[in-house]
């Protein structure tokens, strides 16, 4: 019978104490915002011996901009991600964050919670989280940084999930951040829910185009427990874009790309486990939704011509952001180093 734990032990203000508390008592449930766990608790399906609140750990909350990458702390809320500065450099992630719940929910819901909520592999049934951010993070090629007493572990976000949707976090492990390669603003996120307002997704789609490396990444989510990349559509598209002129010469490219993306819903091993659809709608509806979303996202990310100028604007903005964020962090006394292993930190 666990004694009543004193409150300070449950709400550390530093990362290391949090990891130590988690190692000492594996019964603790990590809670950042509570927007998923509290649903279970309210329904009487979760009776934890204690919560480990990580919402007052300054190192875990914030966005760090460096030359090579952007690091988003795990306890960064969706409301933080909707901010104009994030929207300027990570439009897909900002749009995904904005599509989640209501404004009041977004002030609590966090990035790490969106990734880590849900069941563990082989565990019992749990509420299926929407994981809208996951679609954007997979398309962005995010790496999740996990920390435990044993050390640090970095893993592609897509590999954080078992095939049944369970989260492959070791006991005592805490997601501290996601690292995103600094790309460009040619991104888009689309979501179709069961209604116009906030709600669970029927389909989410994220499109990330990097004109520098001439790569297109597209991910689909909402149809199964885990979002997945649709690589064949991206590879095909990369060959049909005039990268030097910043144009898509053939207008039918959009439609073909959309059709290829929609095929990704059906292809096993590319877009989630076949037969594990969390279907609230028919497959035909979802296929059509994927096609429409893919076409719209591509039209916005890569209009038929003239997006080289947008890429330039984006680079200027990203440069300003890097310069400003370091200054502003120092000014406000916020931690200057992101919660990633020291070797990975850039000076």
């Amino acid at each position: 019978m666990p004694p009543s734990a004193p409150l300070p032990a449950l709400r550390p203000t530093g990362l290391e104490p949090a990891v130590e508390a988690l190692a000492a008592d594996p019964g603790l449930r990590v809670l950042a915002g509570g927007s998923e766990l509290m649903v279970l608790a309210n329904a009487g399906r979760l009776r934890p011996s204690g919560f480990l609140l990580i919402d007052r750990i300054p190192e875990l909350r914030g966005v760090w901009f460096t030359e090579q990458e952007i690091i988003v702390g795990a306890a960064t809320t969706c409301a933080d991600l909707v901010h104009a500065d994030v929207r300027a450099v990570l439009p897909a992630l900002a749009q995904a964050a904005r599509s989640i719940g209501s404004a009041a929910l977004r002030t609590r819901a966090t990035v790490g919670g969106n990734l880590a909520s849900g069941k563990r592999p082989g565990g019992g049934p749990a509420a299926l989280p929407g994981r809208d951010l996951l679609t954007a993070l997979i398309a962005l090629g995010a790496v999740a940084v996990c920390h435990s007493m044993a050390g640090w572990r970095q893993i592609q976000v897509a590999e954080l999930y078992a095939r049944d949707g369970g989260v492959r976090l070791e006991p005592g492990e805490l997601i501290t951040a996601v690292r995103l390669p600094a790309g460009t603003g040619q991104q888009g996120f689309m979501k179709i829910g069961t209604r116009g307002g906030p709600g669970r997704p029927v389909l989410t789609l994220a499109l990330v185009v990097d004109p520098a490396t001439r790569q297109v990444a597209c991910a689909l989510g909402g149809h199964g427990p885990v979002a997945a990349r649709v690589d064949h559509a991206g590879v095909w598209l990369a060959d049909h874009v005039d990268w030097d002129a910043g144009a898509i010469p053939d207008p039918s490219t959009y439609q073909t790309f959309a059709r290829l993306v929609a095929e990704g819903l059906l292809a096993p091993m590319t877009a989630g486990p076949a037969g594990a659809s969390t279907s609230r709608v028919s497959d035909e509806y979802r296929r059509q939704a994927a096609e429409v979303c893919a076409r719209r996202a591509l039209v916005r990310a890569l209009p038929p011509s003239g997006w080289l100028e947008q890429v330039k604007q984006y680079q200027i903005k990203a440069e300003m952001m890097r310069a400003r964020s370091a200054l502003e962090r120092a000014e406000r006394g916020l931690p200057s180093a992101p919660p990633v292993p020291a070797a990975g930190r850039t000076a």
């Binding site: 409150l7 449950l10 709400r11 809670l31 915002g33 509570g34 927007s35 509290m38 649903v39 608790a41 309210n42 919560f51 609140l53 919402d55 409301a79 209501s102 404004a103 009041a104 929910l105 002030t107 609590r108």
Partner: peptide, 12 residues
């Protein structure tokens, strides 16, 4: 900040 009372743990 507006929050949903039902999904905010009292601890917070």
């Amino acid at each position: 900040e507006p929050v949903l009372g039902c999904l905010t743990p009292a601890l917070a």
